[in-house]
């Protein structure tokens, strides 16, 4: 079976700096069906470099869909057309000869563009700093089997813990809300017995921090969960809301 090749027209967002005005630049690119989407961009970048032009800046690292570093909007969809797939796992067999592809950075006030497709997601770190942890100093923890955790609780916690912090949920949301990301961490920890002591403070603190960042509010649109490469579901937002309300009531 011969490998099929294709010629593409890419319209890529280029922006020199956070304050510079960006715009689309059009490139011709060659690819074959076995390449990943990022490898297609690598090849284009290498040809730009050898012509002495600055390559397109995009961030990435593991290329296995787990580190959460990659992210771009492709033809209007965060991470591109494949369901539950980060852009580093998207492969070119999706595309055909002559296709046009628009490539943009995450667009959200909470994620300012740094350069080209590279955005600043440090707001996510600050949300986690405000309460996305269990206070357990190292040393002196009880035996790991001392507190049994129900199989379902462990599984449901793991479902939420699978979030990779990529930010696609924010990019997909018409309000650029960070509820899915924040809810995922709250659900990961609050679904476990170990997470109970700080449960309500955690919800309160994380939501306060989320509101301090430039994220919008949630209007139950659901676009976040659709875009999420890790299948984080809307029930984490329900849990976030419940625990937040309970916390507010408690705080009186």
């Amino acid at each position: 079976m011969a490998t099929s090749t294709m010629k593409l027209k890419l319209h890529v967002w280029r922006q020199e700096s956070p304050s510079a005005r960006g715009g689309f630049v059009t490139y011709e690119a060659d690819a074959n069906e076995h390449m990943s989407f990022l490898e297609m961009l690598d090849v284009l970048n290498e040809s730009l470099e050898s012509r002495g032009e600055e390559p397109i800046v995009f961030d990435h690292d593991c290329r296995e869909g787990i580190c959460g570093t990659c992210g771009m909007v492709i033809n209007g969809r965060p991470h591109g057309p494949w369901e539950r797939t980060t852009v580093c796992q998207l492969h070119m067999r999706e595309y055909g000869d002559g296709d046009q592809i628009w490539i943009e950075p995450w667009r959200a006030k909470g994620f300012p563009v740094v350069k080209d497709l590279f955005v600043d997601r440090s707001a996510f770190d600050r949300i986690l700093q405000s309460g996305g942890f269990i206070s357990a100093n190292s040393g002196g923890a009880p035996d790991a089997n001392a507190i049994p955790v129900k199989h379902e609780a462990a599984e449901e916690s793991m479902d939420a813990a699978a979030c990779i912090g990529c930010g696609a949920c924010v990019a997909a949301c018409p309000n650029a809300s960070a509820m899915l990301f924040t809810g995922a961490k709250i659900a990961h920890l609050n679904r476990l017995p170990q997470g109970q002591p700080e449960r309500y403070d955690r919800a309160l603190d994380m939501i306060l921090q989320m509101e301090e960042e430039a994220f919008g509010s949630c209007t139950n649109h659901g676009a976040c969960a659709e875009a999420c490469p890790k299948g984080i579901e809307l029930d984490v937002i329900a849990m976030l809301n419940r625990d937040y309300l309970a916390a507010v009531v408690k705080a009186g």
């Binding site: 942890f133 357990a136 923890a141 790991a144 089997n145 199989h151 599984e155 813990a161 990961h188 920890l189």
Partner: peptide, 22 residues
Amino acid sequence: NEIIDQCVASGVPFARDYGGLL
């Protein structure tokens, strides 16, 4: 062994059997 204790205490959702043990 201490590592596993520490990780569980800090909320690592390791796989569990149906009795709730690791």
